[in-house]
């Protein structure tokens, strides 16, 4: 992200949600974005996730400057390169857990329901939800729903998985399990995770913590790396083959 800013309103009602934020995230990193409520951390995550357009600056993912992408290309980019985990009600309650996990790849328009189903089942197995595959997503617990959301976030082998307060709605045991799942996945697949949280202590050791305060990225702190190299460009499975999975 380079010189990213987001301003809402005009004149006296002008609110600067994000002010000249710049940082890089490398492939395989596990990054926390922390800050107090209203600091702009969710706005920042939405910018990275291409859910919101910046007022200024640019988001470059895998070497692609996303600033000038059309609506359709942005949607397609989001679908193929980004995974999402939200705080509440992540899953579509009208679908089963398995169908939820299959959805991003079906949106991508990839053919072969059988293959998609196999991959989705493999992911559900990996997050320990194989038995709940055919359950309606409103029939499983909050912790299970977040694990299903992680599986869904990984189905298209994205460059980055973005999580907005993924444990904000969970009890401590479920929170621990979800965090462990994310961290182990990050390690195993060299998968980049960018996680917004107001409670970084829950996450233990992570690669980096970015602090947002009044819309400014005011602090960067490098913690002990969970994965070996940063920006190595290997093994994330983004399929892009481009600039080493770097988010600038």
């Amino acid at each position: 992200m380079r010189n990213l800013s987001k301003v809402y309103g005009h004149g006296e009602s002008r609110v600067v949600a994000l002010d000249d934020a710049s940082f890089e995230v490398h492939r395989g990193e596990f990054v926390l974005i922390v800050g107090s409520s209203g600091s702009g951390k969710t706005t920042l995550l939405h910018m990275i996730g291409l859910l919101n357009t910046p007022t200024g600056g640019s988001v470059v993912i895998d070497g692609t400057d996303t600033t000038w992408l059309s609506n359709n290309k942005t949607a397609s980019f989001r679908n193929r390169r980004l995974g999402f985990i939200a705080q509440f009600s992540n899953l579509l309650t009208d679908l089963t857990v398995l169908e939820n996990v299959m959805l991003p790849r079906q949106i991508a328009g990839r053919r072969g329901d059988g293959r998609i189903k196999d991959d989705a089942m493999a992911l559900l197995r990996a997050v320990g939800l194989e038995a709940q595959a055919d359950s309606r997503s409103n029939q499983i617990s909050g912790g299970q729903a977040q694990r299903a959301a992680i599986a869904r976030g990984l189905i298209n082998n994205p460059s980055i998985v973005l999580a907005d307060e993924p444990t904000g709605n969970l009890d401590s045991v479920s929170s621990y399990n979800v965090i462990e799942l994310m961290k182990s996945t990050a390690k195993r697949l060299e998968q980049t995770f960018v996680v917004v949280t107001h409670d970084p202590g829950q996450f233990g050791d992570v690669d980096r913590v970015i602090t947002v305060h009044d819309g400014r990225v005011s602090e960067r702190r490098k913690l002990e790396p969970v994965v070996g190299s940063i920006g190595s460009g290997s093994g994330s499975g983004s399929g892009s083959g481009s600039s080493g999975g770097v988010v600038r």
């Binding site: 859910l51 359709n72 949607a75 679908n79 899953l91 949106i107």
Partner: peptide
């Protein structure tokens, strides 16, 4: 609205 939001976040286009 919630479902539409999730769909859009997952990359569904307006046409979808």
């Amino acid at each position: 609205t919630r479902e539409i939001g999730i769909l859009r976040a997952l990359g569904a286009r307006r046409r979808d």
